[in-house]
Simulated scan of single mutants.
Amino acid sequence: MSDSTPPKDGDFASWVDEKSEALKFELGEKFPVPPTELHSPSVHVETGRQKLEEVLLEHEEPTPEFLEELKALENAAPLSDDELARQALEAGGDDGDNKTPE
């Protein structure tokens, strides 16, 4: 940032943007962001658990844990209407208030 030529009339905003981008780059080179230490082969990096949307929509390769969970869900007994109603009444909906179920 030694080359600090003053801006011409009307170019002050672009000059400030240019200098701030140069400073960001310079600081990024001096102080790189370390990688996260949460990387584990048994835990999905972003969410802790892989989601169906990630496999179907984002074309991620399903993890063995995801496939096990999917198989357990397929083999589970169906819920009764009473159980579904109970779960619906306990769910808080979008606002998180279980006094006003949706």
Score class of each variant (00 low, 15 high):
residue 33 V to N: 03
residue 73 L to R: 12
residue 69 E to I: 10
residue 41 P to L: 02
residue 28 G to E: 08
residue 71 K to M: 04
residue 19 K to F: 01
residue 70 L to R: 08
residue 61 E to P: 01
residue 34 P to H: 05
residue 21 E to S: 09
residue 57 L to V: 07
residue 34 P to G: 02
residue 76 A to M: 04
residue 24 K to I: 08
residue 22 A to Y: 02
residue 16 V to W: 03
residue 81 D to N: 12
residue 88 A to Y: 09
residue 74 E to W: 06
residue 66 F to N: 05
residue 88 A to K: 14
residue 44 H to G: 01
residue 36 T to C: 06
residue 85 A to I: 11
residue 6 P to L: 11
residue 40 S to C: 08
residue 56 L to K: 12
residue 53 E to T: 15
residue 86 R to G: 01
residue 78 P to M: 01
residue 6 P to D: 04
residue 9 D to E: 13
residue 63 T to F: 03
residue 60 E to Y: 15
residue 84 L to F: 00
residue 18 E to Q: 12
residue 38 L to C: 14
residue 24 K to H: 08
residue 88 A to T: 07
residue 99 K to F: 06
residue 27 L to F: 10
residue 50 Q to S: 03
residue 89 L to Q: 07
residue 11 D to F: 06
residue 56 L to G: 02
residue 17 D to N: 10
residue 77 A to M: 05
residue 90 E to F: 04
residue 50 Q to M: 14
residue 85 A to V: 11
residue 4 S to K: 15
residue 29 E to D: 05
residue 48 G to R: 10
residue 35 P to Y: 06
residue 2 S to H: 14
residue 12 F to P: 02
residue 15 W to C: 01
residue 44 H to A: 03
residue 3 D to N: 13
residue 64 P to W: 04
residue 43 V to S: 01
residue 42 S to P: 00
residue 64 P to S: 06
residue 28 G to W: 06
residue 52 L to Q: 12
residue 33 V to C: 02
residue 67 L to E: 06
residue 77 A to C: 01
residue 44 H to W: 13
residue 91 A to E: 09
residue 35 P to G: 05
residue 82 D to K: 09
residue 42 S to A: 10
residue 1 M to C: 06
residue 12 F to T: 12
residue 81 D to W: 03
residue 50 Q to T: 04
residue 49 R to A: 05
residue 93 G to L: 02
residue 29 E to R: 13
residue 29 E to Y: 02
residue 11 D to K: 13
residue 92 G to P: 08
residue 46 E to M: 12
